[in-house]
Nucleic acid binder design. Structure first.
Length: 293
DNA sequence: AGCTCAATAT
DNA sequence: AATATTGAGC
């Protein structure tokens, strides 16, 4: 428990002290008497929320550092997420900071009930909040934007898994994208299957045959009915899909009123992939993966 | 519990 | 148009 913030983001486990061996960070490290004896001004005490937030920040900076290869892997002129660049909060930080509730996967905390904060807010809202129950409390997740980067990883993972094993949960786990839900993947997968089916019927090419988007990426061997992705697994039983990817694809469909910060798929220009007759081409325009009719 | 598919909603 | 949600059947 203590050694990982989230099952999907286990970075290290072996050789590190367990939770029981560590002093909880929300406790004062220096006894009050000792502190005053050395004129150390006491730190403000930390709540679990503070500690969790700090952990999240640390995790995120590690992931940012880690994800530079992802960013540079895409030949594009995208620069790795800059260190000094004003850092966007990750999706997880923004919506799922409360990790204190043990045993519950944070991504399942879809909506949080607000206990009795309807006083001042509801006083301010006069007309259109009757149905909306104060959007703040709903804490709704922005819709996922399947950027080319995300889609590429999706494709890679599906290819790795093979047809039989490419199910939403497994895909989600292998993609290792923070904040990505099974529902996100299921929805995308459904659409993707429809697309591939259409492609099947329309040309001689199967879905995985000549589209270099599908074949260029890692897994030629498992394309055909691989029942084992065992060789991909590491000791955890988790899969060795290396670099965790920060959630960069969240956006609000371009609607107003949403604070900028988590949308922002990389830059104004991103590379859009679209598919025609089993081939793909790249268009520079708005950013999301499309399956043209 | 989870997968898939269709229909529907946003 | 893209994604989410829901519900049914398995």
């Amino acid at each position: 428990m203590g050694e990982s913030v989230n099952d999907d983001r286990v970075l290290w486990e072996v050789g590190l002290p367990g939770a029981d061996d560590l002093t909880p960070l929300n406790l004062q490290l220096i006894p009050a008497e000792l502190a005053s004896a050395f004129r150390i001004s006491p730190e403000s005490s930390k709540t679990m929320t503070d500690v969790n937030r700090a952990s999240q920040n640390m995790f995120s900076s590690l992931q940012r550092w880690h994800s530079q290869d992802i960013a540079s892997m895409n030949n594009s002129n995208f620069k790795p997420f800059g260190e000094e660049r004003n850092r966007e909060e990750t999706f997880t930080e923004k919506y799922e900071t409360d990790l204190t509730r043990e045993g519950s996967d944070p991504r399942k905390l879809r909506r949080v009930e607000s206990g009795g904060t309807e006083d001042a807010d509801s006083a301010l809202c006069n007309e259109n909040c009757a149905d909306d129950t104060s959007a703040k409390t709903l804490n709704k997740r922005p819709r996922l934007v399947w950027t080319p980067q995300l889609h590429k990883r999706f494709i890679e993972v599906v290819a790795h898994l093979g047809i039989k094993n490419a199910v939403p949960k497994t895909i989600m786990q292998l993609m290792n994208v923070e904040g990505l839900t099974r529902e996100n993947v299921a929805s995308h997968l459904q659409k993707y299957r429809l697309y591939t089916k259409r492609m099947q019927g329309q040309s001689d090419e199967g879905p995985y045959s000549s589209d270099h988007l599908f074949t260029s990426t890692p897994a030629p061997q498992s394309l055909r009915e691989s029942s084992e992705s065992v060789h991909l697994r590491n000791t955890n039983g988790h899969i060795a899909m290396p670099t965790p990817m920060p959630m960069i694809g969240m956006a609000n469909g371009g609607h107003v009123g949403m604070p900028v910060g988590y949308g922002v798929a990389l830059e104004a220009e991103t590379c859009q992939m679209s598919f025609n007759r089993g081939k793909y081409h790249e268009v520079f325009s708005a950013a999301s993966t499309t399956y043209p009719v």
